[in-house]
């Protein structure tokens, strides 16, 4: 496929669910330990952390683990009050023992959040939520960021062995982290631009043919030509690659 260029920092590869959950030092989070802790809390807990610190990613992976253990874990992402009915329906429809995973719990506010908790008690389901601050749930994990974490995330992106150190260097990653005050999402956007800038001389619209100045076309192609993976019915995230 001549001319195809894929960027490993695109939202497809960096959105929650696509990145393995890592702790602040960049080491993989032991999901089994977290699940044991969650069970210790009675099944209801909150993942707390600042903007862009990996809360949604961790939530997605924990939900996947719960489903792999044969439990139902419907996932709801709240953007605004308009999404609260969906959360209500999910809790209402949940069976006893299910874990309803709600991203951005603070969107509910105190009153609606309280009502949702009461509904969860009535239905007998558990709640696993993410929030920027404490919301009255037991705290499962406090997410923090570090340059090491960003380096680990970048090191886990598709075909990293082909471009890491050649197109994106360690200093690029540290610089992006520093530029955005530890916000991983914004750091990844900056790295997207850096990667795109490195790939750009390949060809341009309005040009007269395919010119590969860098020899990177083959590398980029390998990143996205095909992908596969498991997903689960009702999962809001597509789980490819």
């Amino acid at each position: 496929m001549p001319g195809m260029v894929s960027n490993p920092f695109s939202t497809r590869h960096t959105r929650p669910g696509s990145i393995a959950p890592l702790d602040a030092t960049g080491r993989p989070v032991d999901l089994d330990v977290l699940l044991d802790r969650l069970h210790g809390f009675g099944g209801t807990a909150a993942i707390v952390g600042p903007h862009g610190s990996g809360k949604s990613t961790l939530l997605t992976h924990l939900a996947t683990c719960l489903e792999r253990d044969g439990r139902r874990a419907p996932r709801i992402r709240l953007h605004s009050w308009a999404d609260i009915p969906a959360a209500w329906r999910a809790i209402h429809r949940a069976a006893p023992g299910d874990t309803v995973c709600i991203d951005s719990w603070e969107c509910t506010g105190r009153l609606v959040g309280g009502l949702l908790r009461i509904l969860a008690r009535v239905t007998g389901c558990h709640l696993l939520v993410t929030s920027h601050h404490r919301v009255g749930f037991p705290e499962l994990l406090q997410c923090t960021t570090s340059p090491a974490l960003l380096r680990s995330i970048v090191g886990g992106l598709p075909a990293h062995g082909l471009w890491l150190g050649k197109v994106i260097h360690a200093e690029d990653i540290d610089q992006a982290f520093a530029n955005h005050g530890g916000n991983l999402r914004e750091s990844l956007y900056e790295l997207y631009d850096r990667f795109e800038a490195a790939a750009s001389p390949i060809q341009c619209v309005g040009g007269d043919g395919s010119i590969d100045h860098t020899g990177l076309t083959g590398i980029y192609r390998k990143i996205h030509e095909s992908a596969d993976g498991f997903s689960y019915v009702g999962a809001p995230e597509r789980n490819l690659g």
Binding site: H51, L78, H79, S80, W81, A82, S104, E106, C107, T108, G109, H132, H133
Partner: peptide, 11 residues
Amino acid sequence: KSEEHRAASAG
């Protein structure tokens, strides 16, 4: 409030 919480009122 956080950015997420703020947008909750943008329904």
